[in-house]
């Protein structure tokens, strides 16, 4: 079943060579498709076409990170607060005063570049220390809101009393035991000399593999769907070999 608009039809080629630059045009899709094929050529073997696309990719990605730093961080979060903005009635923007003390951030952050200097290398630890300190300060909040509800949920009724039915109690018991046993695997603080601890930590390792198995399974799904989506992009959106969604 070949589609009328497909790559085997003259219309496809006519459309391509119109060099239409509107978003979603065949010409633009072709650019992306060629780059995709460039990366996929690695599957056959390492080659120049692949290396070319790979370097284009790294270059674009690095370049975009510079652009993103300027337009999303330095300008809105440093320059604008430092310089303020005058009121603009036509746009309905209120005046924002200039907090010129923000200027101090620039030399402070630039201390990081001393990392290349032997003599003053220690100065680069000040900006890094500030960032690490800010991160560390957030951990209390993170622990309370992310992990405590998880621990609380581990406290489950394991006796079939009241509303808890027998299957529920068994499930809960499994949940609680799995948790404790896997935790015991992570006891590194002292040597696990007792036979009991050695056994539980062995079982813990097995149960850990259950978790890893689940993660492995879902990871494969994501990667395959990404490839299927790329195949859709190449075969349907670019070559138009089948019915689109």
């Amino acid at each position: 079943m070949i589609f009328a608009q497909s790559v085997f039809s003259p219309q496809w080629w006519q459309e391509l060579f119109r060099f239409d630059t509107a978003e979603g045009s065949l010409f633009r899709i072709t650019i992306g498709a060629i780059l995709t094929l460039g990366l996929y050529s690695l599957l056959y073997r390492e080659n120049k076409f692949y290396r070319f696309t790979e370097h284009v990719f790294v270059g674009l990605a690095t370049g975009f990170s510079v652009v993103a730093i300027v337009k999303e961080v330095l300008y809105p979060q440093w320059w604008i607060p430092m310089m303020g903005t005058p009121a603009n009635e036509t746009l309905g923007v209120e005046m924002m005063p200039a907090h010129y003390l923000y200027g101090a951030l620039l030399p402070l952050a630039c201390l990081a570049f001393f990392v290349f200097s032997k003599k003053h290398g220690w100065l680069s630890r000040i900006p890094l220390g500030i960032i690490v300190g800010l991160w560390a300060g957030q951990q209390l909040n993170a622990f309370q809101n992310r992990f405590l509800p998880q621990i609380a949920d581990q406290a489950r009724p394991i006796l079939p009393v009241g509303e808890t039915t027998v299957p529920m109690a068994i499930n809960n018991l499994i949940v609680v035991v799995t948790w404790i046993v896997v935790l015991s695997y992570f006891v590194y603080s002292f040597e696990q000399q007792s036979k009991f601890l050695q056994r539980t930590s062995m079982v813990g390792r097995w149960l850990l593999m259950v978790g890893f198995g689940a993660i492995f399974g879902t990871t494969m799904m994501t990667r395959f769907v990404l490839f299927i989506d790329r195949a859709y992009f190449l075969l349907i959106e670019w070559l138009r070999l089948g019915k689109p969604l």
Partner: peptide, 17 residues
């Protein structure tokens, strides 16, 4: 959109193989 984003998606889909 047509270069960086597409390359990004293609690069990660290679992992399937």
């Amino acid at each position: 959109l047509d270069m960086l984003q597409i390359l990004d998606a293609a690069m990660f889909s290679l992992i399937a193989f």
